[in-house]
């Protein structure tokens, strides 16, 4: 499991505060998602690519993520052209393919990829821990921030526990097949992982209690706004503005 393959780096984007990047990503994301025209979304895509270059993210490492995302857009391509009513351009048996459907699928595909690239640029350039603190600074409810930080901290431990149990089963000559024995074994493995996770959660809670935890996480990070922050915020807001102007001029500039 690797959630943070782009989190380390020396670019201006890596140096900016996570809460500033979160604000930027949120604005850009809403602007692009609300677009009805192709032109502003394409402009957004170009801007996201500029962001990727600024963040010095090796483009070769993106294929895997984009592939996963486009599995979802593939579903759009399979359904929208035959379900959206409009001018038919061709017929496949009793199904008619509409121009409007194809346009919509294309718009969704470009939008999705734009947003993923912008999120990689702005959000994936921070570690999960920093993002948790960024959210805290943006006054997101502490419980949600804790949930993110703890999921991240313990997902590795729980995964390791699951692997340990599974290895124990394999070492006793367990071979997964399509049988009720296999299903029952996997059920037990998952159940036991759950039980262990719950026990661990209890012990962690005790450990926190013993160190004076009273429900609120106090952050150790400084609250200074860095020079890079203003640049990033300005860049993200300008990008949002460009997208919105193009959209509300009717995609006709």
């Amino acid at each position: 499991m690797n959630f943070e393959q782009w989190a380390e780096g020396s670019s201006i984007l890596h140096g900016a505060s996570p809460h500033i990047k979160l604000i930027g990503a949120l604005c850009f994301c809403f602007a692009v998602a609300s677009c009805q025209h192709m032109q502003p979304v394409l402009a957004g895509l170009v801007l996201a690519c500029v962001g990727l270059l600024l963040a010095q993210i090796p483009l070769g490492s993106l294929y895997k993520r984009l592939f996963l995302v486009n599995i979802f857009t593939l579903v759009c391509w399979l359904t929208l052209p035959v379900t959206v009513p409009g001018t038919a351009i061709t017929h496949l048996g009793f199904l008619s393919i509409s121009r409007e459907g194809i346009d919509m699928a294309l718009l969704i595909t470009v939008k999705t990829n734009t947003l993923v690239l912008m999120f990689i640029t702005l959000i994936a350039t921070s570690s999960v821990a920093d993002l948790g603190h960024g959210l805290q600074r943006l006054k997101v409810p502490p419980k949600l921030c804790l949930l993110l930080l703890f999921s991240y901290r313990y997902i590795f431990v729980i995964h390791a526990e699951y692997k340990r149990l599974k290895r124990a089963a394999l070492f006793r000559s367990f071979k997964p097949t399509t049988s009720s024995h296999t299903y029952r074994t996997y059920g037990n493995l998952l159940g036991m992982t759950l039980v262990k996770g719950w026990q661990r959660a209890r012990r962690v809670q005790q450990a926190m209690l013993l160190r004076g935890f009273s429900g609120e996480f106090i952050s150790l990070h400084s609250r200074d706004v860095r020079p890079a922050d203003w640049l990033i915020l300005a860049g993200a807001l300008c990008s949002t503005f460009i997208v919105l102007v193009l959209e509300y001029s009717g995609g006709a500039l």
Binding site: S127, V128, A129, G132, L149, F150, Y152, R153, Y154, V157, R200, R203, V204, Q206, A207, M208, R211, G212, F213, S214, I218, S219, L220, H221, S222
Partner: peptide, 28 residues
Amino acid sequence: FQDADDQLFSPTVIEDVAFGPLNLGDSP
């Protein structure tokens, strides 16, 4: 604790070590 994984719940080492003093009211 017997299992250190139960005791270290913060993402980074310094955050975990500073957790107690912060709760006791020390400044960051």
